[in-house]
Structure formats: C-alpha cells, structure tokens
C-alpha cells in the first residue's frame, strides 16, 4: 500500500516535471526530454501498477512483445514523416 502511494507520488512529480519542461527554453532537446519522462512514467506503471515485478517470464515477454509491436508501428510511420522533406516535399 505504502509502495503504491509512493509510486503515485513519483508519477505526480514526473507530471510536474513534464509541465515545467514544456515551458523551459530547451530548444531541440525539448521533445526528447518529454519522451524520456513519458518512458519513466510508463515503466513505473508497468512495473508496479501492472504488477510486472511479480510476474513470470511469459507475461514479461508478452509485455515486451507489445512494446516491440508499438515500436514497429511508430518506426514505419516515422519513416514517412521524417523523410518527407528529403526531396523537397
């Protein structure tokens, strides 16, 4: 119980960091910092709230597979967005 409260508090803290970071003049690093914070939040949620810390190898594998899946989708979509400007539109 205490652990869950602590984790929630950590999430709230990260949320605050997100908001603050969004308003700081960080230049091109800004989105990457946001991704980093989001990653940290997701990890906390998976590990504690979704109870991956007490799961066996199969469940963890399924979780990783889901992540890889999402990554593939994002990569291929990004392959469009990131290379559009290469030939001038």
């Amino acid at each position: 119980m205490i652990r869950l409260v602590l984790v929630s508090a950590a999430l709230m803290l990260l949320l605050a960091v997100t908001v603050v970071a969004a308003h700081l003049p960080l230049g091109p690093a800004k989105p990457w910092i946001a991704y980093g914070i989001a990653f940290a939040k997701a990890t906390l949620i998976l590990w504690f709230f979704m109870e991956m810390r007490s799961e066996g190898a199969t469940a963890r594998l399924a979780m990783v597979a889901a992540g890889v899946w999402l990554l593939m989708m994002l990569t291929l979509t990004a392959a469009d967005y990131l290379t559009r400007s290469w030939i001038g539109g």
């Binding site: 392959a79 967005y81 290379t83 559009r84």
Partner: peptide, 9 residues
C-alpha cells in the same frame, strides 16, 4: 504525399 522513401520500403 507519403515520403517516397517510406513508399519504397
């Protein structure tokens, strides 16, 4: 209007 590089892939 998708990037041609993505299309090739």
């Amino acid at each position: 209007g998708q990037s041609i590089y993505a299309s090739a892939f």
